[in-house]
Design a protein around this nucleic acid. Structure first.
Lengths: 200, 200, 200, 200
DNA sequence: AATGAATGAGCCTTCATTCAT
DNA sequence: TATGAATGAAGGCTCATTCAT
């Protein structure tokens, strides 16, 4: 699996370097020259692989191989973890994403999709958002069966949680945020799920 | 109050025109030329008033003189409105902001403060955010006194609401959003406040 | 008549310099930089006046204010010259055009209209060609009235002459030509016009 | 006759493909990349055979192995055709050349020799031109012997005809031309050859 | 022979910024 | 104050040409 030709390797290398550039500068102000410099290749050389920053950015996004949440969730599922543990794990991953400085593409992605409107179905951040909602909803339902959680509207609660997380992400990108602030918000939502006391 | 000299008038005029530009193009990609064109003044003329797009953008932001929520709230307060009505009014304003296409500086502001990190105290969107939280918190408390609302953690609830709104804003800028989607999320939060049934 | 503002003067200056460039390099291979260098202005400066070499070339062509043949012809007409003298004058001008090295736009014009096909009505070289045919035809007819010339098909003869001249022009641009060669061809045509002997 | 090695075959193949490129784009704007693309070979591969577009163009020209007029003329001569028929045949070939869209190198050739001045003796279009003049002259003389034609200056007439054809060629490249226009001009010249009436 | 990745020069175009008027 | 011409830097893109494989 995976093309291992030299060309494919270099493509991968460019994508990696470009991710760093986008993570630190956002999307809009990144130039082909920025990426050329980061990769230490020639101007023309870059054009052999990508024709524009938009193309590179899409390649960067597509290489984000869902390793984050989903993989961790899958691992957790296989381990017969409790719903509470799994939700905690999910939230831990989200926190990591919100807080990480290096390689954080959140804002660049906002910029890209603010400039290039795509249909909802093709919009990866929307798809990701909706997937996350469904995952959380499922976790809540599982938690209700095992009597770990109590919730009158699991789907509504899942959406509420994800919008809060989206709000935390943008807050982090634009105003700065601390781990405590994230914990406080997540905890508030979780409290609404726990029958008698919070255990997050 | 307010400088009414010709110079001040022109400054104001530039700011108005510039707001339209930022609202439609965002922050990063706006050039001095864009603003010169929008204002229909000379290149050199603009420089007499502002030295960069950053400077103009800050002027635009500072001219956003709290006319939005606060003014409406103030009007409402004077009218002896109930807490429920006032919260409904506040949310209506927020909805309007999220949905409006023209003159919507939300994303440009994100871009600006993502690029120019300022200390929390000087960050107007943070200040605005915190002000909004305090207003909502106060409204909830008022509502509890009048037994319109029931809430165990008014501050937590207020913050939850504002993060959801922040999430809705960025969703609107990047994925598109409908009025129904906004209503659904706001309703979910409000339901948690109503003793027995939702009346929003 | 004629805009005398500084801007118009500079425009004129650029056109003059550009003409020299097109005359020596043809049309296709001329770059904006070539013209910038010839004018000794800045890259950006040129763009204030013209957006492309095509635009400049059209401006050069349009500044070719018919001073050549027509003016000379007009002068001649006013002087009550004989048809023979006038035709001789016309041909002298054509010869000059064919032979001149400096400022000869013939080939550049060929290149331009070979690349940018325009409708016959808008094609200046076609218009010029047809005008010339009509002038020659008229001169022949006048010459017949004054019994200087004899010709069974004045229009056919006029066209034949102009196609020969066109052939001489392109020959000059691509193979080189001498004054003698031109004279020989023109003389051949003229001989067909003279009742008994050639007097050109 | 003819090298049949693989290498020579490939050279031939490149020349053929290149001819199409020059015919459709002219000479000056053709790049090595254009030819590489047309041949579907590698960049480096092309350089094994040719070092520049100029070199390729000369190869294309040299492969134009007089198949056109001369061959047809030769065929005609062998068939004991009359001078009138042969001249008609010659003109038909010329017309075909002027009118054909595909594979028409006329203008590219003009461009090449306008840029690269060569001595008259080495200039293939000049050589071709002069050969054609001599052929026509000969045909006229033959026609006089057989009393098909009458002409006081066969060489002058032959040159006149060929310059007209040159004029028609360039007109075709730059302004467009119809078959009728060509016929009209050729007919005009022929009429001058026919003792009493035209029979072309 | 043949490939095609890589380089770097060169042209295009747009902008921020300055400055004489 | 106000203008807008002028500059030069910066980034985009393409191509001729080379070279390791």
């Amino acid at each position: 699996m995976g093309d291992t030709t030299k060309s494919a390797q270099k493509r991968k290398y460019i994508i990696e370097k470009a991710r760093e550039v986008f993570a630190s500068k956002g999307y809009k102000t990144v130039t082909m020259k920025d990426i050329v410099d980061a990769c230490d290749i020639s101007r023309g050389g870059l054009y052999l692989y990508f024709g524009s920053t938009a193309e590179i950015f899409m390649a960067v996004l597509n290489s984000e191989v869902d390793e984050d949440d989903d993989e961790a969730i899958d691992r957790a599922l296989k381990n017969d973890a409790s719903a509470g543990d799994m939700l905690a794990l999910f939230l831990k991953e989200q926190k990591k994403t919100i807080l990480k400085k290096k390689n954080n593409l959140t804002f660049a992605t906002y910029e890209y999709f603010s400039e290039n409107r795509v249909s909802p179905a093709d919009n990866p951040i929307r798809t990701q958002f909706e997937t996350a909602v469904r995952i959380v909803e499922r976790l809540i339902e599982n938690g209700m069966e095992s009597e770990e959680f109590y919730c009158e509207d699991p789907m509504g609660c899942a959406r509420n949680l994800m919008y809060v997380i989206e709000g935390l992400k943008v807050t982090s990108s634009t105003m700065g945020i601390t781990e405590e602030m994230i914990d406080r918000e997540l905890m508030y939502v979780l409290k609404g799920l726990v029958p008698y006391e919070a255990e997050y």
